[in-house]
């Protein structure tokens, strides 16, 4: 069982909680103890908006163990509006074609079952879907 390694990351996984560097204001995700921009210590929590754009994407046909139920699935590099890039699955694509530059928004979804498919702990994580409800995205800017 790998409960603890998922459990300790729950804040970032469920809600994209990262850090802001108190020295240079850089937004940091995933959280790390040293700011990648200025090299100083950074431990101040920062909640990302979850909005971003697709930097690149691909579809995984040969899924590793634990991901076969979802295959084929789309994984992307997503550039968050606040700066950092993350690797994450795209979801709720329906028949929509993915394109580089496409605006996406974070949702919290089921990622996999830890260990046994029926009996294992459920791992939840950020994923991204095509940005919906443009009315709200405009209002937030």
């Amino acid at each position: 069982m790998e409960i603890s390694r998922h459990w300790r990351l729950k804040k970032q996984r469920y809600a994209l909680i990262g850090e802001v560097c108190p020295h240079c204001e850089a937004k940091i995700f995933p959280p790390r103890d040293v700011c990648p921009e200025c090299g100083d210590e950074a431990k101040t929590e920062f909640a990302f908006s979850g909005r971003g754009k697709v930097y690149s994407y691909t579809t995984v046909q040969n899924a590793p163990q634990g991901y076969a139920d979802a295959a084929p699935y789309t994984v992307a590099l997503v550039q968050l509006d606040e700066g950092p890039m993350v690797t994450a699955q795209l979801t709720d694509l329906g028949s929509q074609k993915v394109e580089i530059g496409m605006p996406v928004e974070m949702v919290t979804r089921r990622l996999r079952s830890e260990g046994d498919q029926e009996r294992g702990m459920l791992v939840y994580s950020y994923k991204f879907r095509p940005a919906e409800f443009q009315r709200l995205a405009v209002a937030a800017d």
């Binding site: 469920y14 139920d69 979802a70 699955q89 979801t91 709720d92 949702v107 919290t108 979804r109 089921r110 990622l111 459920l122 939840y124 994923k127």
Partner: peptide, 13 residues
């Protein structure tokens, strides 16, 4: 629900 949705994820949104 999509294959990665359940009552928890839907409740969160």
């Amino acid at each position: 629900p999509g294959p990665d949705e359940d009552t928890a994820t839907m409740s969160i949104e």
